[in-house]
Design a binder for these strands. Structure first.
Lengths: 218, 218
DNA sequence: GGTATGCGTTGACGCAGATCAATGCGTCCC
DNA sequence: GGGACGCATTGATCTGCGTCAACGCATACC
């Protein structure tokens, strides 16, 4: 889950063309699986359009969503041989896929590309640490507020800055990302809406009091 | 928090000597701070001896321990300019430190070293995802059992395989790592000891029923 | 129209783990 | 010795969030 845009910024036109020639454009229907935890990782994906849910399962069915991949994000890097988590499409998704061997060969040949990938992985790790703080030490309200601010920032960086944050994932997805239940997520949304901190709109949420939210996210 | 042993396995003798010549051996007293979250990252550290607590703080003092660094682990890689977390010594610690600029130059010059570092970072990310699952979806008992098994494995990989797991960190450190309170950690230890699943010994824990523990960790 | 299915909301109640508080038990230092 | 301090344990009580259950409200299909 690494942004290709930034990764590719260090490539020459020639190298970009090479990368493009290796890519397979693929479409995934809503709910379709891109790949499954534990399966051998043959491909690497770059999301072109849509949102992807990344998650791990426990044997008894408990689920932890480890992230949501947005357009530009790269999937399938963080594994030696097998995928460390599953990924499926939230709504329609288009992606470029690369064969793992071609990807590995390219990376071996281009050290500055590797450097970008390493920077990206390192950034992911920082985000993961933030998420640990959130999961281990924050209240339900703080979790939800941090989530909304985080999604807003991510959409903004993709060139869609807005106080209205699109939330294509279900309440259950959000709950499994934040370590909560669907009921707690729903109740917390309702409470924030009653506060006039947010306004719940179809397909998302409008941030009405970002100042208070930033204060809660501290 | 990346193991230098594995990183360095890909270096030639000459390169290892170069690395060694860049290193400053440093000693830290019990409780001493190696570096602080948010400060500019001038150095990179490799732990030689002892255990280091890695943690983030919230403005109101809530703490999340993001990891424990053991001998061989590398610290200070996951940041562009500033440290993303704080680190301090649990007991006496010795470490090699490298200036950040020397480290950067070396990495730029040795692509295969970079590749090792990237693999290590990627492994860290996988562990971080596991920790998210633990923090978001597991019960107190499961958290503790997973922690103990994880520490046992790490000591084993360092060449100290034993059913007696050393726990140099305080109960508070463990609590802050697992997203619990000190009281819950203490009570859960006591319950596991009454079960005869573990035996609490000075400075650690002896695993008496690894089978049951593995089952709980699922 | 009817009813089935999926998602979200709301309410009543229960419980795992937090909080508050006391006690034990080392080690250190005077 | 004794008391001060840091860490761990244990008990009593509280509470945030989970669980269970009902209901609302779309869209879909017969």
């Amino acid at each position: 889950m690494v942004r290709l845009v930034s990764v590719c910024a260090s490539l020459s036109d020639e190298e970009l063309a090479l990368l493009e020639s290796l890519a397979h454009h693929t479409h995934f229907a809503s709910g379709a699986t891109l790949f499954t935890q534990g399966r051998e990782a043959h491909s690497v994906y770059n999301i072109t359009e849509g949102v992807v849910r990344l998650y791990k399962l426990l044997s008894d069915g408990r689920r932890q969503v480890v992230g949501f991949a947005l357009p530009g994000d790269f999937l399938g890097l963080a594994m030696r041989d097998a995928f460390g988590f599953s990924a499926d499409a939230i709504g329609e998704v288009t992606a470029c896929s690369f064969s793992r061997s071609a990807y590995t060969a390219l990376v071996d040949a281009k050290p500055h590309l590797l450097k970008r990938l390493h920077e990206a992985a390192t950034h992911e790790l920082t985000l993961a640490h933030e998420q640990m703080m959130l999961l281990g030490r924050r209240s339900a309200e703080e979790k939800l507020v941090c989530f909304l601010l985080g999604m807003q920032q991510r959409w903004a960086r993709l060139g869609k800055p807005s106080v209205t944050v699109p939330l294509p994932m279900t309440r259950q997805d959000i709950a499994d990302f934040l370590g909560l239940t669907i009921e707690t997520v729903s109740r917390t949304f309702t409470r924030l809406a009653k506060d006039k901190t947010i306004l719940i709109v179809p397909g998302g949420v409008r941030l009405m009091n970002p100042e208070r939210m930033n204060q809660l996210a501290a």
